[in-house]
Amino acid sequence: MSNTWSIFKRELKGYFATPVAYVFIVIFLFLNGLFTFQVSRIFERGQASLDVFFNWHPWLYLFLIPAVAMRLWAEERRSGTIELLLTLPVSVVQAIAGKFLAAWIFVGMALALTFPTVLTVMYLGQPDMGIIAVGYLGSFLMAGAYLSIGICMSALTKNQVVSFILAVVICLLFILAGFDVVLEAFNAWAPAWMMDAIASVSFLTHFQSIQRGVLDLADMVFFASLILGWLYACGLILDIKKAQ
């Protein structure tokens, strides 16, 4: 446990050791603002809700979170420090947990910095703070799922760009699975259970219900099991191909 904590601290500090962290946070906040205020015109809707703000998150995360995760293992591989790290008295599980949590907390910090949007809707009217809190929680959980995919892809290669692209593609599949257009393509021939199965692995399906303020156990379990599943795969990949 203390090993996980040490790795967590090192990784989190690592983000802020370079300008990358600040650039990420600025881009994240800028795009959030741009989409929420300029594209979705939250002012003109006259609704005191953050619906339109959260709507953009699956898409923002699609590109920004793989960028946060790509470094985590690929850099260890490229510089060879993976050999140093994994010969210390630390298990692969502890190492993955430390790195994942550091990245997750980092994304959480960026998410927390969107609080002016909340202040804005409070100014516009009387928003349901419960719904907003659940929305943030859901967004944070979904970010964790994106991250777990990213960290797993990062373990595959020593090239950060490759890791980034792989993660974006897989995350995109998880978004598109819930899209009507995609589902219609299956509609013609796929049996209903298969349609349900495809729709049910989509980030969108689960995120939308959380966004409405419904904190369903099934959605929480979905994101949690997705995170654990991808982290488990990450552990397998590291075990199988440690040295290359």
Partner: peptide
């Protein structure tokens, strides 16, 4: 065990 792997990898950013 103390170990220095080949080509001495260390965390350069620290």
């Amino acid at each position: 065990t103390g170990y220095v792997p080949e080509s001495n990898p260390v965390y350069g950013d620290m």
